[in-house]
Design a protein around this nucleic acid. Structure first.
Lengths: 214, 214
DNA sequence: AAGTGCATCTAGACACTGTCTAGTTTAATG
DNA sequence: CATTAAACTAGACAGTGTCTAGATGCACTT
């Protein structure tokens, strides 16, 4: 889609000017096209029109580059969820949860490579600062949403923990299975969006007993 | 745990005798210890006490080795599920589903590396024969279980598809999230087995409306 | 305006990887 | 026993990440 020519360093110049971003963009297209393992510092450098040692100054390691790319993914997913909420404008807890769940899976389906990187511990140093934060925020947001459902009387307070685990597990598993190709092959006739919507709507119904609203 | 010394070729001999298996065992310990990306044909060859070109004759590619290792994982998981059924001896559809779900997640938690490989498309050639089979069998078995629940009157026939997707997604997501470390960090106080049992029991209750049996 | 500090980037080296190829050993088969 | 085919070796090659020493030029201070 987006060409990579504009990422290259202007000819004759020694300093790139926007190398950090150019490397991330090159990583993005590589991940999207050929998967996370197709990323190499040298290839990424080549796309940016820069020597193979240049990335080290901005990301230290290859793991540094991948961590930055993963963090970018978390930011994007959070933004996508925010947009989903803006569109659906849910007005109670269960509807909010359904909206969030759909946006989560939709993001993963639309950006399978980056979503994959976001949950791959082996690609970056898990001891690094900033690794924990992203997933932590997601968990907090999710459990607050569940708590809101409980506060509104849709579920028992003692279900909070279990429901949080089930909800995240379901959306994450749906995303991962779809992207792995193991479910997709079974559901040729169904489009991804329909499957996503059906699973999320039904799970929320099961947990919070809403009347189905066709 | 298991030493790797016994994998090495007997000294003075030219033929290994059991190289294919030795390479798979070396792969297993490497995956378990350092993750899937730590596997290299040369390291695996070194452990087996054999030259770096030897694996090619048994697995053709590195992707061939990883595919074989993934298939082995599927066999093991199926066996583990069978053992779970033997222990719990469930006598209706929902109980069977709960048993299967728990065994699925338990296997993934006990063998995070191999489970990971089983769902990584990038590690082997997805066009290869035998790639589809494993996931296909899992799907068929799962949907047959759901169908049994329906036949026994625990759910509506039109829910079959959605429930199958939700059930597999939940267990798979729980396994993947736990192994990614993103949930684990939140649940220090809970042991993995308890979380696994609670989530599966509750999901089955939600879908098939059994009375909770404390 | 001149000079200097320092982040940015280059280029070569090193050890490692997967795969290819030609050749060596040995088990199995006739 | 002779021959065929499978198992394995050893070297080469292009590619990788990371480490160095050095070149470049932007952004300051004075």
């Amino acid at each position: 889609m987006t060409g990579t020519e504009d990422l290259a360093k202007p000819k004759g110049r020694y300093h790139h000017g926007d190398l950090r971003n150019a490397l991330l963009r090159a990583t993005e297209t590589l991940v999207a096209d050929k998967g996370a393992d197709a990323v190499s510092l040298r290839e990424v450098s080549r796309v940016a029109g820069v020597s193979h040692g240049a990335p080290a100054h901005h990301f230290n390691n290859k793991t540094g580059l991948m961590l930055a790319f993963a963090q970018e993914g978390w930011s994007r997913m959070i933004a996508a969820i925010g947009e989903g909420i803006g569109t659906d404008s849910p007005d109670n807890g269960p509807e909010l949860l359904e909206t969030v769940g759909k946006a989560y899976v939709a993001f993963a389906m639309a950006n399978p490579g980056q979503f994959d990187v976001m949950f791959r511990r082996d690609l970056y140093d898990t001891q690094d600062d900033g690794y924990v934060g992203a997933g932590e925020n997601a968990w907090v947001f999710l459990s607050e949403t569940i708590q809101r459902c409980i506060d509104e009387g849709f579920a028992d307070p003692e279900d909070a923990e279990t429901y949080t685990v089930i909800a995240w597990s379901m959306v994450h598993g749906l995303a991962a299975l779809w992207n792995s190709g193991r479910v997709k092959s079974r559901f040729d006739r169904l489009d991804a969006a329909r499957l996503n919507a059906a699973a999320n709507a039904r799970l929320v119904d099961l947990m919070f007993g809403r009347n189905s609203k066709h």
